[in-house]
Simulated assay, not measured.
Amino acid sequence: MEVLDGLAQTRVVSRSSVYRSAPFEATGPDFFNAVVALETELEPLALLAELQRLELQAGRERPYRNAPRTLDLDLLLHGAAVLDTPTLTLPHPRMLQRAFVLLPLAEIAPDRVTPEQIAAVAGQVIERI
C-alpha cells in the first residue's frame, strides 16, 4: 500500500482491513486481500500499467489463469469510467461475484456496495483479520 502511495500523480486516500479468503475459482493456499482507494491523475490504462509493473517487481508470474501469485493488483473502478478493451474492463467484470472484493470495498466505500450484493456472496469463506 505504501508503494501505491508513491506512484506518480497518485496517493492512497483510504484502505480497508486485510481479509483472508479461500481461493475463488482457483486452488492453493488462502489469499490475503484488501481494497485501497486512490486519488490519481493517471488515466485507467496508465494506472493499470503501473500496477502490473509493481506486480512484476514483486515476482509475479502469469503461467496460467488464476495461478497462485505473490501479488495481484486489480483495478476495480476508476471514477465513473466504463471501459471494455482487450486490456482492461471497468468496472472490473467479476468484482460483484467475489466476497474478497465486496467486503473490503464496502468497508471504505459503502456507497459502492449494496446489501443485496453482499448477500449474493455470503456463502464464500472470508475472514477479516
Rank of each mutant, 00 (worst) to 15 (best):
A34N: 06
A37S: 10
A34Q: 14
Q57A: 15
E55H: 10
L54K: 11
L45V: 13
F31H: 13
P29Y: 02
E43D: 11
P23G: 01
E25D: 08
A46R: 14
A67S: 12
T40E: 02
A67C: 10
A37H: 01
F32R: 14
A49F: 06
R69T: 09
L42Q: 13
A22N: 05
L51D: 01
L56A: 14
E61D: 00
L42E: 13
R69G: 09
L38S: 05
L45S: 00
L51H: 05
A67K: 01
D30Q: 05
A58G: 10
T70Y: 00
E55C: 13
T27C: 08
E41S: 06
A26S: 09
A37T: 12
Q57R: 15
R65H: 14
A58W: 10
R62T: 11
L45D: 08
A34E: 00
E61Q: 08
F31P: 06
R65M: 03
A49E: 09
R53V: 06
P44Y: 06
E61H: 07
V35G: 00
A26G: 05
A67H: 03
P29F: 01
A34M: 14
A67N: 02
P44W: 01
A46V: 10
P44H: 10
T70S: 15
L48E: 09
G59Y: 05
F24K: 03
S21K: 00
L47D: 05
P63W: 07
L38Q: 02
G28V: 06
L38A: 02
E25Q: 14
S21N: 15
L56Q: 13
R69F: 13
L48W: 12
R62V: 14
P29G: 14
L48I: 12
A58I: 10
T27A: 04
A67Y: 08
F24R: 07
R53A: 15
T27F: 03
N66Q: 09
R65I: 03
L54N: 02
A46S: 15
